[in-house]
Design a protein around this nucleic acid. Structure first.
Lengths: 330, 330
DNA sequence: TTGTATGCGTTATCAG
DNA sequence: CTGATAACGCATACAA
């Protein structure tokens, strides 16, 4: 691989001049320009990004650190991030952690090592203290999942309200025996969605029944398994609210296997509105998160932090929407 | 952000000594070690990756350049890549091109600029000449989609044979009016799969009928739309072979909308075996690509190129499998 | 318009 | 075991 000095030697100019040719803004005479570009072509020279970034202390790159690209929920958000990033001259690199803290920390190390100008974190496994410390060094925005009480902006929806609305919808259809398929983890969204479920029940005068609550890991399999359990109860629920579409689909498939009709025998509501939820048969009633916009807003905030040194706002809450489809209403 | 010199000053040692502490292999006296780690903690020092990589001309990173993370087909491959990469001490960064050549070229620039030690390309939009030239500079492996006749290894399945087997399966079920939903693009897999379709028909003495062939863009929508057209034909097909699961699912939904039974009225076969194909109702008959293994083998080959300077083999073909489910057999 | 000199932050070599 | 020095490749301030 040739360097800027090789090009300079071949073109009979100094490295500085070559640099000026590469970075078009400066003044270079037409003839030297030609000489230099010729040498660049002949040597097939490409500037070393590491050298350039080191010198400029700027990379024009940002990292998106996320647990799992195979979750379609994230891919839509990433689109929003990428569009806004590209509009602002940044390039995005995705870092898949598989929800593994050790892997996440490797990427965080790169980030702290100036490999990128900033990062967007989704569902980070880091604790609040480490996040707080990170925010001192580097512009970072939390997207969707977030920790509270640290000086780092976050973008999300109102999870409690969304869950409340979903369950309210089921109650409005006449259901009283409404089960809940959630998740036991550190994420705020999990507890907020459960909170919304309980609030809706309470308002309708329905007793909260722990037997109707179970916890999965967002996977198809866990939804499938939990539904099987719920159907074994003597007082079988007539509706189920799931905190993810994938679990809802698992639950529906499970009920189908027991020859139950959806929604006649049991209604199912999901959460997220991944693109698959309308393709599925029966199509899925769910809470639509504005995924693309979540990504856009997060990236907007990040650009702001990178370029102005600080965040405009700490809390961004975007609108969600209940989308009613075949899995709850015939 | 503090540098190695800040740490050195604070600890009262030279930068070289700090470097030795960070890079554990060298010999440092216990007391200086303690002094230095103390200074590192106090200053919250993190080594600058750019400086380090520049000096070492090695990044221990690889790039995966792919068109679209929202395609579940790729996410499984990425898992394989990541596992092998991590085992070998490499970190993976994903670069989403959205099938946009300009965006892909930006990432290729980073690659040529030594931001990473190598790359895996999936469904590249670059032409053969550019790929050939790239292969001179940097270790690169093509995965799944590939261009032939260039000195760059590729990993894939035998697409022609796979399609042949899928269509053979439909013929074996008694179908004679078998439609084809493919894609018109530069990718070898598209033409090879069509070739396999035609070969299977030919062997069974079935005439190839251009009216039974249409082309989508791998999307749900295109599968949906094309199926609608096929169902309008006076001689309606009784089976359809689609070159992607997503299009197959679109096609099935389309047929369902016309009150047709799957597979009784029309059988549908997909390609890829994305995780969703078994969740779908009816579950999808499809060609299972060994996605995880494809990723592993590609990364293995890349590690080899990076560390030994050259590829062991140019062509890796992995086994595929016909998975028969509800969409073709009751 | 162009060249010289310097430093971005790190590690490797060599000497002590 | 430790320090001084140079070099990785580049862009910029300054001088010419």
């Amino acid at each position: 691989m040739s360097t800027i000095n090789d090009v300079a030697a071949r073109a009979g100019v100094s490295a500085a001049t070559v640099s000026r040719v590469i970075n078009v803004n400066s003044n270079v005479s037409p003839e030297t320009f030609k000489k230099v570009t010729k040498a660049i072509d002949e040597l097939n020279y490409r500037p070393n990004i590491l050298g350039r970034n080191l010198r400029k202390t700027k990379s024009e790159r940002i990292l998106v650190i996320l647990p799992n690209i195979s979750n379609p929920f994230y891919s839509e958000i990433v689109k929003g991030i990428e569009d806004v990033a590209n509009q602002n001259g940044y390039y995005v690199m995705l870092c898949n952690t598989d929800s593994d803290l050790a892997r996440e920390e490797k990427y965080i190390k790169m980030l702290k090592g100036q490999l990128a100008d900033g990062a967007i974190l989704m569902a980070s496994e880091m604790n609040s203290d480490d996040l707080a410390e990170l925010s001192k060094d580097i512009p970072v925005v939390q997207c969707c999942e977030y920790k509270e009480g640290i000086p780092m902006p976050h973008v999300s929806i109102d999870n409690e309200l969304a869950a409340y609305k979903a369950v309210k919808h089921l109650i409005g259809l006449g259901h009283e025996k409404i089960a809940f398929i959630g998740a036991k983890n550190q994420f705020l969204s999990s507890s907020l969605r459960k909170k919304g479920y309980i609030r809706a029940l309470g308002e309708a005068g329905i007793n909260f029944d722990p037997d109707y609550c179970d916890y999965g890991d967002y996977s198809y399999k866990s939804g499938f398994r939990i539904m099987k359990q719920l159907l074994k109860l003597s007082q079988r629920p007539t509706a189920v609210f799931c905190i993810s579409d994938i679990m809802a689909i698992g639950a529906i498939r499970s009920a189908m296997e027991e020859k139950l009709q959806i929604p006649e025998d049991i209604a199912v509501c999901g959460f997220d509105n991944i693109y698959f939820s309308k393709m599925f048969k029966p199509s899925l009633t769910t809470i639509s998160q504005p995924m693309y916009d979540l990504g856009c807003v997060a990236m907007d905030a990040l650009v702001n932090m990178i370029e102005n040194g600080k965040a405009e706002t700490m809390h961004y809450f975007l609108e969600h929407e209940l989308v009613i489809r075949e899995s709850t209403v015939k």
